[in-house]
Amino acid sequence: MIMAGGGLAIAAAIGIWFWQSSSASTTDATSKAALAAGIDAQQQKAIEGIVRDYILKNPEIIPEAVELLQNRQKADAISAVRATIEKPFAGNAFAGNPNGDVTVVEYSDFACPYCKQTERDIARLIAEDKNVKVVFRELPILSEASNDAALMALAAAKQGKYYAFHKTMFATGRPTPSTINAAANEIGLDMAAARAFIASPEAKQEIQSNIAIAQQMRFTGTPAWVVGDQSEVGAVGYDGLKEMVAKARAAN
Rank of each mutant, 00 (worst) to 15 (best):
L8G: 13
A9F: 13
A12K: 01
A13K: 01
G15N: 09
I16S: 09
S21A: 15
S21R: 14
T26E: 09
D28I: 08
S31W: 04
K32C: 03
A36N: 14
A37Y: 01
I39Y: 03
A41G: 09
A41D: 05
Q44Y: 12
A46D: 11
I47D: 05
G49E: 12
I50G: 04
R52T: 15
D53A: 15
L56C: 08
L56N: 12
N58T: 15
N58V: 15
I61Y: 13
I62P: 02
E64S: 10
A65C: 08
A65I: 06
L69A: 15
Q70W: 09
K74L: 02
A75D: 04
A77Y: 03
A77W: 02
T84C: 08
I85N: 11
E86V: 15
P88V: 07
F94S: 02
F94I: 09
N97M: 06
N97P: 03
D101E: 12
V105D: 03
D109C: 08
A111M: 14
Y114R: 13
T118V: 15
T118I: 12
I126G: 04
A127I: 03
D129C: 14
D129Q: 14
N131H: 11
V132A: 02
V132S: 08
V134Q: 02
V134G: 09
F136H: 08
E138R: 06
E138V: 04
P140A: 08
L142V: 12
S143F: 08
N147D: 02
N147I: 09
L151C: 00
M152G: 01
L154P: 04
K158P: 04
Q159L: 11
Y162D: 03
Y163L: 05
A164N: 01
F170W: 01
A171L: 12
T172K: 11
P175C: 10
P175Q: 02
I180Y: 01
A182K: 12
A183E: 04
A184T: 07
E186W: 06
G188W: 01
M191P: 00
M191N: 00
A194R: 03
I198T: 07
I198Q: 09
E202S: 09
I207L: 09
Q208V: 12
I213H: 01
Q215H: 12
R218D: 09
F219W: 00
G221A: 03
T222W: 07
T222R: 00
P223W: 01
A224Q: 06
W225P: 08
V226N: 05
V227E: 05
V227H: 06
G228Y: 01
D229V: 03
Q230D: 05
A235G: 07
V236P: 11
Y238V: 10
G240P: 02
R249S: 08
R249E: 03
